[in-house]
Design a protein around this nucleic acid. Sequence first.
DNA 1: CAACTATCTATACAGTGCAAAGATAGCGTA
DNA 2: TACGCTATCTTTGCACTGTATAGATAGTTG
Lengths: 206, 206
Amino acid sequence: MTINLNSVKTARGYHHGDLRSALLAAAEGLLAERGVEGFSLRETARRAGVSPAAPKHHFRDTRALLTAIATLAFEDLAARLQAASSDAGIDRSLRIRAQGKAYVRFAVDQRARFDLMWRVPLLEAADEGYCRAGDQAFAALDSLVRGENAEPLEHGDPRLAPSIACWSTVHGFARLALDGTFGLEEDDIARAIDQLLPEVLGHLSL
Amino acid sequence: MTINLNSVKTARGYHHGDLRSALLAAAEGLLAERGVEGFSLRETARRAGVSPAAPKHHFRDTRALLTAIATLAFEDLAARLQAASSDAGIDRSLRIRAQGKAYVRFAVDQRARFDLMWRVPLLEAADEGYCRAGDQAFAALDSLVRGENAEPLEHGDPRLAPSIACWSTVHGFARLALDGTFGLEEDDIARAIDQLLPEVLGHLSL
DNA sequence: CAACTATCTATACAGTGCAAAGATAGCGTA
DNA sequence: TACGCTATCTTTGCACTGTATAGATAGTTG
């Protein structure tokens, strides 16, 4: 009968039903609770109600699982960046600010995922989907800074400088805020996003 | 007799001689080789030629050791930032560029230490020395951006915005470069520091 | 209905951080 | 000089990790 042949390969009705998704969900939950440092594959399996070695059939090893999650996170980020600039009207400067805000908010609201996205030693950095999702997120920013119709550029092209400058500033701000370098508690950060960040972006001429 | 009473508390001539320093050295070496993710206290002890539990008397646990290393790294960074701006003459803009370059170069040349400095979950974030060293590094940049004689400000003061903007940009650039987001290999990064970074900093109006 | 394969379990191994208890070296003091 | 004391280090043990292997089982397919 083979129903659901091209339906995201889920719900085949096996022992577990859909372990792959269950593992991803459990892993995301665990990450949110304990952060990247507190993550463990065994605990993930435990939460999915399955034996320690069960994940092996769906993810070669821990890195593969984490890479899948990081990829999803990048896709999520890209979508949010797109949405943020779309919702901000047509003024370029306003759109850039809105996107920067969305970036930092993503980082703060989804700390563990954000941490993971750049924890390269824990990931398969060469994975195709992971790279593509990352490029996709950058493209959201780049098409805003350099213009919608600007020609796509190679990875090291010097004409990317403005976009990279913008990205560096926003990314650095997010990281420093998350890592407590500004001496901000969890609650202060929300205020920092509304007050400090716009001022910081004001020092950027693009 | 008690010689060496106030001589950095080293070389007391005990079982090992100076295990504390030996552990720090071994740990730094291990970090440089395997990165933060590959670090292990037991391997550190092994390299210092000592039993797995020996470090306990000098560092309460792994976090304490890593915090000590991160603190040293921050002090090192602060010194380099100071030196870089001093060596760059008197032109403010040139000094800022020189300091930014020194910052990124530090991050690239001492990757593992730089990673560790902000890996808060692995550190005792409240440790006094650690916080002080961090502030010290920031002060090196702040006194350059806001002026040597500017009054010292509290941690959340909005007048810090220009310094934070500068720091965010440089820090973000370093992180993105290290984490491979620019698609640069190890070797390309050196070129990026000389060519891309100045251009990026050019987009910053301080 | 039989065979086959994907999926999951059980078990095992090397490694980790850390705690607790025992050995020992060098100090101060009598 | 001899005694005891304490800081230093070793040994042992526990719970945990990731991953490899072999075996059980459920669903599908011929």
